[in-house]
């Protein structure tokens, strides 16, 4: 009765006012057969990383609308490293200018999705790139 199922964290760091996008993505992940842990709005990077470790997720996805992505992505990635969990991939999306994407990837983000991306595209990427960690 063994059954490997992807577990993904959908998290909203920072001070965004709404989480429609994150909820749509969470729902799409569920419909793709993934287990999604959803944290709700206004989480600190510390909360997100602790949650990721306690829940043993295969990846952390961040949704950021506030413009603070250049701070929040590296913060979450560094904290994971600090906790000895550098192997947990971080990806995400939100209102992120194209120009910022190379910097975020250099900081360790695996992929960044911008507005207009279809949920199918995100799921296809997840299936290809995220595997159960152990």
């Amino acid at each position: 009765m063994s059954e490997r199922k992807l577990r993904l964290l959908v998290a909203k760091p920072g001070l965004d006012g709404h989480d429609r996008g994150a909820k749509i993505v969470a729902r799409a992940f569920r419909d793709a057969g993934f287990e999604v842990i959803y944290t709700g709005l206004r989480q600190t990077p510390e909360q997100i990383v602790t949650t990721a470790l306690q829940e043993d997720v295969d990846a952390v996805s961040l949704s950021i609308l506030s413009g603070a992505h250049n701070t929040l992505f590296p913060k979450v990635i560094d904290l994971l490293k600090e906790k000895g969990a550098a192997e947990v991939p971080v990806f995400g999306g939100g209102i992120i200018p194209e120009d910022d994407i190379p910097g975020l990837k250099a900081a360790g983000a695996k992929e960044i999705f911008t507005p207009g991306t279809s949920t199918e595209d995100i799921i296809t990427w997840v299936r290809a790139n995220i595997k159960p960690l152990a």
Partner: peptide, 19 residues
């Protein structure tokens, strides 16, 4: 029961204890 997926959202109400 259809996709086998799940949204686990109970933490939303407890996450102040996360750290």
């Amino acid at each position: 029961p259809f996709s086998g997926g799940a949204i686990l959202g109970d933490r939303i109400r407890m996450n102040r204890h996360a750290t």
